[in-house]
Simulated scan of single mutants.
Amino acid sequence: MISDAARAALADWLAAIKAQGGAADHTLDAYARDLRAFLTFMTAHHGASQGLGALARISTADMRAFMAHERAAGLGPRSLARRLSAVRSFYRWLSEREGFEPTAVLSARAPKYLRKLPRPLSEGAARDVLDTLDTQAPEPWVAARDVAVVTLLYGCGLRISEALGLNGAAHPMGDTLRITGKGGKERLVPVIAPARDAVTAYARLCPYPVTPRGPLFFGVRGRRLGARAVQKTMAQTRAQLGLPPSATPHALRHSFATHLLNAGGDLRAIQELLGHASLSTTEAYTGVDTARLMEVYARAHPQGRG
């Protein structure tokens, strides 16, 4: 059994994260599951409920035993890395509150794993998706809505949650759009004319009132459009076009970044447009390869030009 003190500390930590506005509800649920798994293991490992004093004394050997247990239970490297990240975050917070040294926990390293790189669509395939979406819905306003959403994903590089989280205040769209992304970080995104036109066409046909505080994109029942509906439409479209399963709404955001880079866009500028905290994430999104980097080097570096 997890001790009452540990359970209370976990609840306080989750409440602190939520109050800061830095994590979505599903992320908080994942944190809670990961910490409960850790606390449950430590209780069984030591044969007694782990109060705050016992948690402060967790050793490097304890952390190795925890990781070995999780791997033996079938947890993959990626999931274990996420679980350890949650435990480390909890310990940073707990050690500051309780005044102990969390080195043993913070120094624990998860096994390396290969990241699955995104597969952007080709420029032709992206255009075909936009052209075909118009034919998927039985009602003209739904078809216009789907085109508008997907145009924002591909034309502006928005996450699907960012596009569907827009309120009516975003319409009519100007040359830029202020987006609140992960961790509450704001960024300005240029809005291309086709995206503005697509949103305008949808709003004109939409049977529900688009108000400043209400959703911009509606589902057929008059509530805010959910991601599942967009994913379903994309699945129908890729089946019709013979595209692979990797052609998802999120792949359109990858495509936005990759096509910008291929057209000569600056990697750091693309990082800003996507709202990435790390340039390495942008490199993965854009599928940067050695040949491309050498081409940029040869063109830009003084010795490369000489």
Results as ranks from 00 to 15, higher is better:
H276Q: 07
N167C: 00
M173G: 05
T180Q: 14
A65F: 03
A137R: 14
A61P: 03
L273Y: 08
K232S: 14
K232D: 14
G222H: 05
H26V: 00
V87I: 15
H276G: 06
F217S: 09
V288T: 14
H254Q: 01
L260T: 12
A11S: 15
H69A: 06
A8D: 15
A198M: 04
L260D: 08
N167Q: 04
A108P: 01
D289F: 08
L267F: 07
T200Y: 01
T286N: 07
I192K: 13
V105K: 11
G275S: 13
P118Y: 06
A203K: 01
R268W: 10
D25Q: 05
A137Q: 15
K185I: 09
M67K: 09
F100V: 09
G184V: 05
G306R: 15
E96Y: 04
A126G: 15
A44Y: 05
A144T: 11
T258M: 01
A263L: 11
R119I: 09
G242W: 08
D4I: 07
K185W: 08
T151W: 05
V296R: 00
C156Y: 04
E70F: 00
R238S: 01
R299N: 11
V296C: 02
R292F: 08
Y154E: 03
I17C: 09
F217A: 05
A8G: 13
H259D: 02
A9W: 02
R196M: 07
G47Y: 07
V129S: 09
L252S: 03
L267T: 06
N167F: 00
K232Q: 13
S89T: 13
V210T: 03
G53S: 06
R109K: 14
A163Y: 06
L80H: 10
L94S: 07
L117R: 07
M63K: 03
V142F: 13
A19Q: 09
R221T: 14
L75Q: 13
T282R: 04
L152G: 04
E96P: 00
R7V: 01
H45Q: 14
I2T: 11
Q50P: 00
A251M: 02
L252C: 06
T60D: 10
F217P: 03
A201Q: 06
I270H: 06
A143Q: 15
A195I: 04
G21N: 03
K116Y: 06
L121C: 10
A48R: 15
V210H: 02
A72E: 09
R64C: 04
P172C: 09
G99Y: 04
P194V: 05
T135S: 15
T290V: 15
A201F: 00
A227D: 13
E70D: 01
F41I: 10
W93N: 05
L243W: 01
R92M: 13
R127M: 13
P111E: 08
L216G: 04
Q303H: 14
S246C: 00
A198F: 02
A9L: 12
G264S: 08
A30H: 06
R228P: 02
P244E: 08
R145D: 12
R64P: 01
F38S: 08
A269P: 02
